[in-house]
Nucleic acid binder design. Structure first.
Lengths: 233, 233
DNA sequence: CGACACTTTGATGTACGTCAAGCCATGTGG
DNA sequence: CCACATGGCTTGACGTACATCAAAGTGTCG
């Protein structure tokens, strides 16, 4: 991991809420209080259960956020990408990270100390309010997923996992799911609480039904509408 | 529903984050911008899918917050009680309530317009920050639940539902779960995505194993430690 | 070219979801 | 005050979808 000082003024990532809501004159100070880090693929950013000391902003890359379950059955909370906040789940009453974060690709991540970040929130109310709105959206997303996981059968869950990937990574011109090649069957399974076995089987069914095409890791969505129909009720 | 103006200064509920984080001189203005409403049991406070216009603070009572699923299989998100915030899940990008809220008991609920509340957040940064922390805790809670629901079998889910109720409502001197008499088997089932049938069966097992005692609706916890052991791994 | 890891596929037992019938409380009207 | 109706609770029986295991297949790396 390579650490260096960089300036928010020159950062090209417009999704970052710091850049969006801090006034220009504040950004100079902000830059003084952060470090930018470069991670190799499959490096741990922070670990579930550890004390929360920092908050992270993912400038570029893909990071897997996940919770430990029993017997190496982890639960993937989300895949974060450019502009996303990491570690904010740790601002809870326990003071411990409730999830782990691990890079999937090479990544650039800025970090602030928790102390400085809270000082910043107090000085820039719009930042606090908009971070609050980020939480609200994530809470909605998780509660919808919770409802769905309670209701869906295996086939529906796999359809849901594909739509989650499409939503997060998008499709390229040919209809292929971006970044799908970096995901194992296990990864897909852990998004929706299944085993890699079950995912493989249902993906095979979907291929049979011409909803998708599979070239090992690369998945092409042929009929998104039908996939959406499977998860709607 | 009876509406009236009351003052936050005289409110006895110290759990309310408005009272906790607004300076005394601000509370006068706040009181001018809210209404207190008295609801009968089983009245709807707001409905999933409706436009978000207000935020609510539950002064006294028990309110069921739930999401609609397929074929009257609702999902209970939580039971709110004295001091809890209601409707904050609606501060999302869709502008619609993602859940419904319905009183279980007679309840007193204060409401603010969304506009005034956001103005207040901007003027009182500590309120915004602490509301953010409320979201963070709820997000943690939901993600833990999501993980558990993906992993647990029926027996474990029922144990979990009992522990949720104990956590929310507490036990009286005799070990009975407070307010359990207002809950149907269906309610318990909808906390953890089961049917009332399944809940009844497992509660019967727990009774057999002397973990609980059942007097129709009233449930007495005899061995909380063992219940916790069932949901731990 | 061989070793390793991941994926695919089939077979098997079991836990689960569903249905239906009986039971027990509660409340109402004769 | 008792008979009856209603709604939720309880229990058992049954078929199915699911979890798990093992073995073969495929791709990838040194």
């Amino acid at each position: 991991m390579v650490r260096k000082r960089t300036s928010c003024m020159e950062c090209l990532n417009d999704n970052c809420i710091i850049k969006q809501y801090c006034p220009a004159e504040k950004l100079e100070e902000v830059s003084q209080n952060k470090m930018e880090n470069r991670y190799a693929p499959h490096q741990l950013v922070f670990h579930e259960g550890n004390e929360v000391d920092s908050i992270y902003f993912l400038q570029k890359g893909i990071v897997k956020v996940f919770k430990n379950g029993a017997f190496n059955k982890d639960q993937i909370v989300r895949f974060s990408s450019d502009g996303d906040i990491l570690g904010h789940r740790g601002f809870n009453s326990s003071g411990l990270y409730p999830v782990s974060a691990q890079t999937n690709t090479e990544s650039s991540i800025c970090d602030f100390s928790k102390e400085y970040f809270f000082k910043l929130l107090d000085e820039v109310p719009q930042l606090a309010i908009n971070l609050m709105l980020v939480y609200a959206d994530e809470l909605n997303y998780e509660e919808t997923k919770l409802r769905d996981m309670a209701l869906f059968n295996v086939r529906e869950k796999v359809a849901k996992s594909l739509l989650i990937l499409v939503d997060r990574f998008g499709l390229d011109d040919g209809g292929q799911i971006n970044n799908a090649e970096i995901l194992s069957r296990q990864d897909i399974a852990e998004c929706v609480g299944l085993t890699s076995n079950q995912v493989t089987k249902v993906l095979g069914e979907f291929k049979q039904d011409q909803l998708i095409a599979i070239n090992t890791k690369k998945i092409t969505v042929l009929n998104k509408q039908e996939l959406e129909k499977i998860v709607s009720y």
